[in-house]
Amino acid sequence: MARFNDANLTTAHEIIARYPRPKSALIPLLHLAQEQNGYVTDEAMRQIAELVGVTPAEVLGTGSFYEMFRFEPTGRYLINICGTMSCALMGARELLHAAERSLGIHAGGTTPDGLFTLHQAECQAACTEAPCLQVNYRYRFKMTPEGVEQLIDDLRAGKLDDEIPPHGTLARVRQHIPSDRAVGAVDPDDVVGPPAWIPVTVEGAGS
């Protein structure tokens, strides 16, 4: 379960092949593992380490730097309420309190049924639409405390399942580079000279 399933393993190899150095795929593969299992398991980190040629400790070392990666079971819905300046000026604190009351947990916690994890988050690049929040990185703008309660009810009732996939899934569309169109990733040390469209001149190849 915790290792990549066959489809995801194929995707993982496709991702790795896009980078001149396999280690660059580390963060994308952590996302893939989180998408499959809802969080990043130890088993997944061991497999990613094998795939990109580093130690499992390096995978954890890199992964733990980034806030989106969770290393323990996380609610199906991760609610991130923005608390940075523009949202704070427009009532972010009331949203957080409404969510805490409604879920019966403090920020940082997960509900006992495993459905919700609540976080206070930082600026979500939607400051003009303050105060705002994200559920599994899907936005809700200009929220009110009542709106937060309604949102939680709707999520609990499964009414938003079409719009909001379970925690771990980010983009539902993946990039696919068709093999007949791909230029391909070359190890940087194997590249000599300028690319084809840059004339080699005495001045040294297209400043």
């Binding site: 896009r18 980078y19 660059s24 963060i27 994308p28 952590l30 996302h31 992964g63 730097f65 980034y66 806030e67 989106m68 990666f69 980010l170 983009a171 569309v173 990039q175 696919h176 580079i177 068709p178 007949d180 169109r181 791909a182 230029v183 391909g184 990733a185 690319p195 084809a196 469209w197």
Partner: peptide, 30 residues
Amino acid sequence: NDAYAAGYIGKNILGSDFSVDIVLHWGAGA
């Protein structure tokens, strides 16, 4: 995906000797 299929990205873009891949990558919160 659409731009690759239509020949705007990748090998010999629009039949020229200009070739480049664009790789989508995303971060993880920092």
